[in-house]
Amino acid sequence: MDLQVVQIRKRSEVIVEENKTVISELQTVKNNLFDLNERHLDLQMRTVRDNLIFDGIPEAQEEDIEAVLKEFIHTVMGIEEGIQFHRVHRLGRKIPNKHRPIIAKFVLFKERERVRREAPATLVGKPFGVNEQYPKAINDRRKLLYPHYKQAKRQNRKAVMVADKLFVDNVRVYRSDPLPDDRLVPNRNHYAPAIPMESAPSSKYRSTLRLNVTLPSASNPELRVANTKTRITIESKTPDV
């Protein structure tokens, strides 16, 4: 009887150690998935870095959208140099009595930057807007940080938001939970999370990671179940232009 107890205890210790190994491996997979998702987001960001979104430009029944945008940049924004585009189109389905935004992919990044930088001054008080394009996951992070950006501005502090990163007084702010007006402080433990994997949009881009995990059998600790496959699929949509 004592021998059986000793054997059971040893087997239990083996199971505990194997479970620790499995947990460690799964944590590694989780970290790798996060890194893979961040790299994919970076790739998405690069595909739209030359794009700008123009809001408020009236939409006609039949229109040459590129010509409309060039006329807007020339007459409303006062930029006389000829701007070149790879592609220009309106976003979404046409809705009666509404003007869809225009998205434009610039040929030259420096021309895109000039239009973006001059927009605040040239469009102040006008019903138009010019914004950078970001993937949905980045926009979700920006929404979490935007209240803190506005809060810092109310405090007359230097606040700059670059993509999904917020800097206040040249210090990066990581918090994503609401803060009182007098407690806006950096905190690396509350980084704005990425878009949840289960709510990622469908895509033609797909990355699959397979992990072979060896687990102990529940009925027999000495019997090992090999080649148990865990398949994890990441899906995300690269914005079109």
Rank of each mutant, 00 (worst) to 15 (best):
E235P: 00
P101S: 10
V115C: 06
R116V: 05
N220C: 08
V115L: 03
T47E: 10
L179D: 02
N19Q: 14
P101M: 12
P193E: 09
Y149L: 15
N97G: 03
A67H: 06
S176D: 14
D181K: 10
E113W: 06
F109E: 11
K165Q: 10
I103Q: 01
P58S: 08
L69K: 00
V162D: 11
H86R: 13
N189Q: 03
H86C: 07
L184S: 00
R175K: 11
R114T: 13
P135Y: 01
D164V: 02
A163H: 03
L36I: 14
I65D: 02
D35R: 15
R172N: 07
P127Y: 10
R11G: 03
Y174H: 15
K20N: 11
K237L: 14
I15S: 05
R141M: 12
V76Y: 04
V225D: 10
D177C: 13
S202F: 08
R206S: 15
Y191A: 07
L223P: 00
K153L: 13
T75W: 09
G78N: 09
V160Q: 05
R39I: 02
N31W: 10
P239A: 10
E198A: 12
S202T: 15
R116L: 15
R231I: 13
K10M: 09
G82T: 12
K158L: 12
R100K: 14
N31F: 05
A60H: 11
D164G: 02
R87W: 03
N220I: 04
H74A: 06
R39H: 08
P201S: 11
K94L: 10
E13F: 05
R90Q: 09
E111A: 09
R114N: 05
R112V: 06
R210H: 13
P216E: 03
S203V: 06
E113L: 13
H74S: 12
N189F: 04
D42K: 06
R142W: 07
P96V: 09
R49A: 05
E80M: 13
L41R: 00
I195K: 06
A104S: 11
N51W: 02
S219R: 12
P216Y: 02
R172C: 14
H40F: 07
V48K: 00
V124N: 07
V29G: 00
T233L: 11
T233Q: 06
L166I: 03
H86G: 06
A163W: 01
V168R: 01
D140V: 02
P201R: 06
G92E: 08
P239Y: 01
G125H: 08
N139L: 15
R90E: 12
M1K: 09
L166E: 00
P193V: 15
L91P: 05
Q7R: 08
E198M: 10
T47H: 07
P186M: 07
N227H: 15
A163V: 04
V107R: 11
Q151A: 04
E235G: 04
S199H: 09
